[in-house]
Simulated assay, not measured.
Amino acid sequence: MTFDNQTRILIVYDSNGGNTYRMAQQIARGVESVKNCHAILRATPKVGDRSATALPEVPESGAPFAETADLRECEGLIIGSPTHFGNMSASLKYFLDQTTEQWFAGTLAGKPAAAFTSTGSMHGGQESTLLSMMVPLLHHGMLICGLPYSNPELMQTLRGGTPYGASHVAGEDGKAPLAPTETALCKALGARVASIALALTNSPEAARS
């Protein structure tokens, strides 16, 4: 579907200290650097918050909460999470676990998808997290988009950035800003998904046949 004649890329993220949110913002810039593409940011509610009697309509900071209905309105999906023991967070996993209806309907089949993550340490499980995040996307029949080495920042980075998706090393205190190479790769990931989604929007039969 399109929004005001624009291809919509949904960016769903979980964030603890704000690092993945900042990555999502840069990915959104990459999406919107592609003509006729529009980025939509959504945050997953924390799992513990779901037991509350009333969940606020919007979080205190960041993007509005994600709903599975958002998946029907996008032509591409990018998911992000901090690394928890080498895997995605429980909050993002919980959100994905609610998408059985979309799986039965084939809502996401043939659409491009990608992943991003942040860790406190250099070897904190970024690649295993990104790979594990791809598994439910593959079950949905999505087309996984990584970062090719035509992006020179993959060879230049001294912190985050992998061929499996964008990543960030936030440091032990979790406050390190995005490095220039990390920022560039976030934007590149957004632009890559947007470009592929735009091409498929113009010729959807190619991915769904």
Rank of each mutant, 00 (worst) to 15 (best):
A105M: 09
L138F: 05
T20M: 04
P136T: 03
M142L: 07
R42P: 05
L131F: 10
A166S: 09
E172Y: 03
G76M: 03
A43R: 15
L41S: 10
G86E: 15
T129H: 02
A69C: 03
A109K: 14
I11W: 07
E205P: 00
A43N: 08
E101Q: 14
F116E: 13
V169N: 13
P204I: 12
F65T: 05
L55F: 02
M1A: 09
G62Y: 09
K46G: 11
E57L: 13
S167A: 07
G76F: 06
L154A: 01
P163F: 01
S33Q: 09
M142E: 01
A170T: 09
E73A: 08
A179E: 15
D173A: 15
Q98K: 04
L200W: 06
A43K: 15
N87D: 11
Y149H: 11
K46M: 00
P136F: 05
R50Y: 07
N19V: 15
G17W: 01
I144T: 10
S132M: 15
A199Y: 14
Q6D: 15
T181C: 04
P152H: 11
R42F: 04
L200T: 01
A170K: 00
A199F: 13
M133I: 15
E205M: 07
K175E: 03
A28G: 14
S209E: 05
A176M: 09
E182Q: 08
E67C: 05
P136L: 01
G146K: 03
Q98G: 06
T20H: 00
G48L: 06
D14H: 12
G124M: 08
T162R: 05
Y94A: 12
P152Q: 02
A69K: 06
G76P: 03
A115Q: 05
L185T: 06
S209G: 11
S118G: 04
A179R: 06
P45R: 14
A113V: 08
M122E: 09
A69I: 08
P64A: 13
Q26K: 03
G76Y: 04
A197D: 05
A197E: 06
P204G: 06
E127D: 12
I196H: 08
L41I: 00
D97H: 00
G190K: 04
R22F: 09
H168N: 01
A54P: 02
G17Y: 04
V169F: 06
I40F: 07
T162M: 10
T157V: 00
A206Q: 07
G18C: 02
G160R: 07
M134N: 02
P152F: 00
Y164E: 15
L200E: 08
A199Q: 14
S61G: 00
A191K: 11
P45F: 12
E127L: 01
T117V: 12
G17Q: 07
G165Y: 00
T181D: 12
A43Q: 14
T157M: 03
